Simulated assay, not measured.
Amino acid sequence: MTEIRIQNLTKRFGDVTALNDISIDFPSGSFTSLLGASGCGKTTLLRLIAGFEVPDGGQLSFGDEFIADAKSQKKPEERGVGVVFQSYALWPHMDVAANVAYPLKTRKVGKDEITSRVAAVLDSVGLDGYAKRGIEELSGGQRQRVALARCLVADAKIILFDEPLANLDMHLRASMVEAFRDIHSRTRATIVYVTHDQSEALALSDRIAVMSSGNILQIASPLEVYHSPSDRKVAGFIGRGTVVSGAVVRRNGSSMVVDIGGTQVTARGHVVGTDSVHVLLRPEAIALADQGLDAVVRESTYRGPVHETWLELANGERLTIDSPHLLPLGSKVHVAVSDAWIIP
């Protein structure tokens, strides 16, 4: 297992700063997702780790081993890093076994050892019996498994994923999420996973780094990022929910009583120096009740198990609730709050 250490890393493309003096460690055996909208810098960070880009400032190391700074860099092939691309990057003129064996052949590994290691790794990714298949004969999910097997056969201690499921349909993506989790639990490789899909990040990772404009806004466990976002940007990007304004009525150590539209709600978190706060309300933490926040039904979208409903509060702000039944537009309702988070 290998730790990745990044100190004050900066990368520019002309006048655009893709990464802005960021520092982050990826502990050995961790699974970290880099999450953010297009252009936030997550793929640039991945390419710097892989060696496909050169930093303009800062330093990158694997454990105590120097890897790169602005003056000198180890070549990609010297880093022992496996990369799984969105495009799979497989050779169509080779069969499955040849694609997987390629890293071993470049290292002059013996033929018998190559055969046994390829067979073992294909079995580990659920492709036993596919060794002689052509790449064009495979589904998207199977091709992604071949790309993963190619990393595993080389015993890569660091595996980088660049939006690997973006080209797959919903059902294939679900099966590949399970495959990635299984591979990580068995190999304990240090994994860095780039995605803009928050559901993938929440399901796969033990840590999520939320990025925006070349900066890291928050790095924490999926549970903490979801339930206790560090600012409004993270709150707006992770999960569904609404940020509403409130006024502090009473402080209770690590929680506060906040007035939202004339109704008092207990909220997690603590701020000092102001009584005006912003509170995050998740749909699963609010429900229709006999008393609570006064609201009017404004819009509704059927999502299958629930009707995603937009309510307007007395102060004109809106929040989202999941209702098992269709609520008449314009009807007045009351909403009880079981959990709320005061955004720092």
Score class of each variant (00 low, 15 high):
residue 3 E to G: 05
residue 8 N to W: 00
residue 12 R to G: 02
residue 17 T to R: 14
residue 19 L to F: 08
residue 22 I to L: 14
residue 24 I to K: 09
residue 30 S to E: 03
residue 38 S to L: 09
residue 40 C to D: 01
residue 45 L to S: 03
residue 48 L to S: 03
residue 48 L to H: 09
residue 58 G to W: 02
residue 59 Q to F: 01
residue 62 F to I: 04
residue 67 I to R: 10
residue 69 D to K: 15
residue 75 K to N: 07
residue 76 P to W: 01
residue 77 E to P: 04
residue 77 E to H: 11
residue 79 R to L: 08
residue 80 G to Y: 04
residue 84 V to A: 04
residue 86 Q to K: 08
residue 93 H to T: 04
residue 94 M to K: 14
residue 96 V to K: 11
residue 97 A to H: 10
residue 106 T to Y: 12
residue 106 T to E: 08
residue 106 T to Q: 11
residue 107 R to V: 00
residue 111 K to R: 13
residue 114 I to V: 12
residue 116 S to E: 14
residue 118 V to K: 15
residue 118 V to W: 12
residue 119 A to N: 12
residue 122 L to C: 03
residue 122 L to G: 08
residue 126 G to I: 02
residue 127 L to P: 04
residue 131 A to V: 03
residue 143 R to E: 03
residue 144 Q to V: 03
residue 145 R to M: 03
residue 148 L to F: 06
residue 149 A to T: 11
residue 150 R to G: 03
residue 151 C to M: 12
residue 152 L to N: 03
residue 156 A to V: 07
residue 163 E to L: 08
residue 169 D to E: 04
residue 170 M to S: 07
residue 172 L to T: 00
residue 186 R to F: 02
residue 192 V to Q: 08
residue 195 T to E: 01
residue 197 D to R: 12
residue 201 A to H: 06
residue 214 G to K: 11
residue 216 I to M: 10
residue 220 A to F: 01
residue 226 Y to R: 11
residue 232 R to K: 13
residue 233 K to I: 01
residue 239 G to H: 04
residue 239 G to R: 04
residue 242 T to K: 13
residue 242 T to V: 03
residue 249 V to G: 07
residue 264 Q to P: 00
residue 265 V to C: 08
residue 265 V to W: 07
residue 278 H to T: 05
residue 283 P to R: 04
residue 284 E to F: 06
residue 288 L to A: 10
residue 289 A to Y: 06
residue 298 R to C: 04
residue 298 R to L: 11
residue 299 E to R: 07
residue 300 S to Q: 13
residue 308 E to P: 01
residue 309 T to C: 11
residue 309 T to H: 05
residue 310 W to Q: 12
residue 310 W to Y: 06
residue 314 A to Q: 14
residue 316 G to V: 02
residue 317 E to K: 12
residue 318 R to E: 14
residue 319 L to P: 00
residue 326 L to H: 09
residue 327 L to Y: 00
residue 335 V to R: 13
residue 337 V to D: 01
residue 339 D to Y: 10
residue 341 W to C: 01
residue 341 W to D: 00
residue 343 I to H: 04
